[in-house]
Amino acid sequence: MKSHDCHVFMQTLIPLAFCDLLSKGIWDALTEISHFFRDICSSKLNVDHIERLQTNIVETLCKLEMIFPPSFFDSMEHLPIHLPFEAKAGGPVQYRWMYPFERYLFNLKKKVKNKAHVEASICEAYIVEEISTFISYYFEPHLRTRINRVPRHDDGGEVPSSGNLSIFSNTGRPTPKNVVRGRYLSEIEFKQAHNYVLFNCDELQTATPTA
């Protein structure tokens, strides 16, 4: 699992996953640490609530020390004691955590072509991308570049409607050759298509109900 998956598991799923498998004392300790991280990562923070968290996390860690062996505890298990003060000083954690940087590092790792020189390969690919983006500003508008390329879901714009409803004025894209063209919709797909027409058709939105 990725680090964000582990974070969600720790915040949300631990109380649900072990409620019937563990004794009440162990389950309470795990639930308290789960609620602690959930409250710390909330979008809005209250100073009084953070101070209560700073007091309660000490008791929670003491309960965990009674459950897990001493080899389990290292600097990471001591870190939650400092998180309430960090949240009180720095604000909501969404503006300070590392997930956006981890996703960007993933994009940089995809640029590696020569594994014998990883750093040089990333630097070269990054410089080429920056230069190509900068130069594309000086091209003619009709030339397709990184700046004005067509979005992936653009299928050519609207065409004259082939029916009485405006929602069918878009031609769409042809399916690939390896995809079966003719098939029946499942019940879920039919309901989704039906709801899409009801919610996106201009004629239905402007129609006045009749008595």
Rank of each mutant, 00 (worst) to 15 (best):
F85R: 15
H35I: 07
E119V: 14
P141Y: 06
E86K: 13
M66Y: 03
T171V: 08
C6N: 04
S169C: 14
S169E: 04
A17F: 07
A87H: 01
N170Q: 05
L21D: 11
L108M: 06
R173S: 13
E189Y: 04
H117L: 08
H142K: 15
K44E: 04
D48G: 10
L30H: 07
S71R: 05
L22N: 02
S3E: 02
A29P: 00
I188N: 06
R149P: 00
D20N: 08
D74L: 00
Q192C: 04
S71D: 06
R52E: 03
V58L: 14
E32S: 07
L108G: 00
P92Q: 05
E187T: 11
E130T: 12
S3K: 06
L204M: 15
P70D: 00
V112R: 02
E32W: 00
F134A: 13
I33V: 06
Y104I: 01
C6P: 03
A17L: 13
C6K: 10
D5H: 09
L30F: 09
A29V: 04
K111F: 03
H4N: 10
L83S: 05
F36D: 00
S43I: 12
N114K: 03
P141Q: 07
T31N: 11
V159F: 11
E51I: 09
K44S: 15
K109S: 07
T31Y: 04
H82E: 07
R144F: 10
H153V: 03
W27R: 14
H117K: 13
K110F: 05
S121C: 06
V47A: 13
E158G: 06
K110D: 15
Y99E: 08
S161I: 02
K115D: 05
P151Y: 09
S136E: 12
P100D: 01
L53S: 01
C6D: 04
D39H: 13
T12L: 14
F134R: 13
N170H: 03
M1Q: 09
H78K: 07
L198W: 13
T133E: 15
T60Y: 02
F18I: 02
H78A: 13
P15Y: 06
E203R: 15
G163H: 13
F106R: 15
H35V: 07
Q11S: 04
R146A: 15
V179Q: 15
P92D: 05
Y99H: 09
A29N: 02
I167C: 14
I40D: 08
E102P: 00
L45S: 01
F68C: 15
P174I: 10
N195S: 08
K191M: 15
F101W: 10
I33G: 00
V180G: 04
V118Y: 01
L21S: 10
T175Q: 11
F68P: 06
L30W: 01
R146K: 15
P92Y: 05
S136M: 11
L185E: 01
D28P: 01
M76C: 05
C62P: 00
T133W: 13
R103Y: 05
C123G: 06
E32F: 03
S161Y: 12
N170G: 09
C201N: 14
A120Y: 02
N148W: 12
L83D: 03
H194K: 06
V58M: 07
